[in-house]
């Protein structure tokens, strides 16, 4: 069987990245934990942001982790779907707004 680039078990094995340069891994995971804990935003809101970002960067590990994280923190499918649409709108909008650059170049080059 062909070895896939993405392997499901890597998500659970994420901490193994610290087997080299554990000092850096420790800093990263401490920062990650601090960011994702309860703050002025709720755990549910942070999970939904993470879920949206996961779709924007198209990371299968993050989609897996934050689908579960969103459910655990009390989000439902409607909210999760809205979060994915937010990511989609921003990605689409980011492409579209570059159309103004295209228009500028067009106008510069055209008689």
């Amino acid at each position: 069987m062909q070895d896939p680039y993405y392997r499901r078990e890597h998500l659970a094995q994420f901490s193994a990245i610290g087997e080299s340069r554990p000092d850096l891994a420790e800093k990263f995971f401490a920062y990650y934990g601090a960011v994702m804990g309860e703050g002025t935003l709720s755990a549910r809101e942070k999970s939904l942001i993470a879920l949206a970002v996961a779709h924007a960067i198209q990371c299968p590990y993050c989609i897996d982790a934050y689908t579960k994280g969103s459910l655990e923190s009390g989000a439902d499918l409607e909210q999760m779907t809205e979060a994915v649409h937010v990511a989609t709108a921003i990605r689409g909008g980011a492409s579209l707004v570059h159309g103004l650059q295209m228009r500028g170049h067009h106008d510069q080059l055209s008689m």
Binding site: E38, S42, A43, R44, K68, G69, L71, E72, S73, G74
Partner: peptide
């Protein structure tokens, strides 16, 4: 209790949501 194969989130955070 969770409506599927996942753990409940933090009790205090969920209580705030409820």
């Amino acid at each position: 209790n969770p409506t599927g194969a996942f753990l409940p989130g933090d009790q205090h955070a969920l209580e705030r949501e409820f």
